[in-house]
């Protein structure tokens, strides 16, 4: 057998939980089908805008801020994951380890500082 028995168990557990996580609410919805009324009407089908007819069709909105934030987030995400990889064994590496991780964090902090100085961290 190629694969590790333990990890198969881990995966099975995760999938089991995911399955119940999706199936349990779905089951509730299903049960509700018999209990619910159903009276569709034209007005009910319209998008909700505080009871008024729809003011504008869903249109494009392009605020590049959102995308920039998400980009920054991915970068910091990767940094965080690498920190999580090195953190548990940090004690074993003593001072040298601190310097290594410190250098890494410093580099990514530079990125944060750069974004800050370029006024890219502001919102509105």
């Amino acid at each position: 057998m190629l694969m590790s028995q333990r990890d198969a168990g881990d995966l099975i557990f995760i999938l089991g939980f995911a399955l119940v996580g999706v199936a349990a609410p779905a089951a509730l919805l299903f049960i509700g089908r018999w209990l619910r009324p159903s009276s569709p009407g034209k007005v009910k089908m319209e998008p909700y805008e505080c009871g008024l007819p729809q003011a504008s069709p869903p249109r494009r909105l392009f605020r590049i801020r959102y995308y920039a934030f998400a980009l920054l987030f991915v970068i910091f995400d990767v940094e965080t994951v690498l920190l999580f990889a090195s953190a548990p064994v940090l004690k074993r590496f003593g001072a040298a380890g601190l310097w290594s991780v410190g250098a890494f964090v410093a580099l990514v902090t530079l990125a944060l500082v750069y974004a800050w100085r370029m006024h890219l961290l502001e919102w509105e």
Partner: peptide, 11 residues
Amino acid sequence: LLFKEDLIPGK
């Protein structure tokens, strides 16, 4: 909530 109508808007 179980007894509420399940409203899925048209679009």
